[in-house]
Design a protein around this nucleic acid. Structure first.
Lengths: 244, 244
DNA sequence: ATCATACACGAACAAGTGTTCTGTGTCAAG
DNA sequence: CTTGACACAGAACACTTGTTCGTGTATGAT
């Protein structure tokens, strides 16, 4: 049962609620007139009158002659459902952001005509990537084994069928196998070619489906001629604004 | 060496610190003049000048013509931690980590058949986006006016010619005009259609060039039939790994 | 009836405050 | 040298805002 805070008139309560929620939503206090509008009181003096009461009762405090300086000491929330407070909301957002930026090493370029550079297979042996790209951890699946990720810059237009453009950054996780529907970077022995495709195993053969659904799939009859290098986790296109 | 991870000048930093701690101590924002006093700046206009910068950089937001309405988005605490409490320390660390991550609001979806949702044109009036996407500040040009950026989720395959897929996230900056070579989101009156294209002015007509260079451009003879909604800053494709 | 008290309006005022415009000096690029 | 950008001061302005005061109307107690 809702135990209403003691001895507050309806008006006083309404003001307290208003100030509380206003502050949470806006990040600053309402002015006297804004409070007046809300409780349908025409004169600023009357609002001030109520505020004085609330102040004496210890619910709020304010600074003399300072705009929007109401501090709520005992917050009162509307009886309506549990709306998240600013704080819990902020905490939640921070939690979601997991307060972290991942620098993902850019190991080189990915071109159709060549195998892709791969991270050193063994150990976390130090090596300096030329550069790296910062990605918020919140953008990756929580389960992602983040330390293995690496990035490549796309060179050329040969991967247009994968909806990947010259200059795009693809982020990969090393893998030798794939499940149906995953996008993989593969090396095709038959064609001497690196490509990005959606992977589907169909009986004994493999179908490689371009991301652009208007284009035709490739069928690989002998899966041993296909080397999966990694799964595509993300594609980032930084659209460079040309110098005016 | 103190690595200041953000491109803030000393003054800007000092202001951010001041506003942050002032708000924490007082429960409300300082006025422009109070800030000016603190950083020993005589004129309110100069303080406003700095606040505008901080606003554009996305560190704070304020309400036009409203006193003491500064909201600190990425708190910055003074570097003199004389015995920080457990809490303030935690808060500070979170703040520091958050500083380099920009939460960009996702305002809705972008479909060919409808105009795109736009951010409220004036007043940074606080509004709650359904969700947001975190982007590392380092991935954007330093000059970017970060506070205006917004994101849209692509729905449907109608923007394949722009190399943009169903489910992709595009990040935009509002704009009414564009320079040659910039990628823009436009509404075409003649076709009742939203599309993403590279923009080229050619004499009196405009050429809209698909990102996929194998496709043909659109020519708009009467540029008044073309409404530029924003410039594309980035495209992000989170490749969802299907549940194994 | 009288008085006190709580509630209410409106106006007027002064201070607080954000905005804008003009001007000045510096400094580096052209 | 000129130009344009940037950093800064100062003042004028308009709007916002808190404060105060005069007035009015109920209501209840005396």
């Amino acid at each position: 049962m809702v135990r209403r805070s003691h001895g507050l008139s309806e008006r006083q309560l309404k003001i307290l609620e208003f100030v509380t929620t206003f502050q949470e939503k806006q990040g600053y206090s309402p002015s006297i007139r804004q409070i007046g509008d809300y409780i349908h009181v025409k004169s600023t003096s009357l609002v001030d009158y109520y505020l004085k009461q609330l102040e004496e009762a210890g619910y709020i405090s304010r600074e003399g002659r300072v705009s929007r300086s109401i501090r709520v000491i005992h917050p009162v929330y509307p009886a309506t459902p549990n709306m998240p407070t600013q704080l819990t909301k902020a905490v939640r957002e921070v939690g979601e952001a997991m307060r972290d930026i991942l620098p993902i090493p850019i190991l080189g370029v990915i071109v159709a005509s060549e195998p892709i550079p791969m991270p050193p297979t063994q150990g976390t042996s130090y090596f300096d990537p030329d550069s790296s790209i910062d990605v918020a951890r919140s953008m990756l699946p929580r389960s992602e084994r983040v330390s293995e990720l690496f990035a490549l810059e796309v060179r050329g237009n040969s991967m247009i069928d994968a909806m990947v453009n010259d200059g795009d950054i693809v982020i990969l996780r090393p893998a030798q196998e794939a499940h149906n529907g995953e996008m993989v970077a593969v090396w095709l022995d038959d064609r001497d070619e690196t490509t990005l495709k959606y992977f589907y195993r169909e009986g004994s053969r493999v179908r490689l489906q371009p991301a652009n659904s208007t284009m035709n799939p490739i069928y690989i009859e002998d899966p041993s001629h296909l080397r999966i290098m990694g799964k595509v986790v993300m594609v980032i296109r930084q659209v460079s604004a040309p110098v005016s």
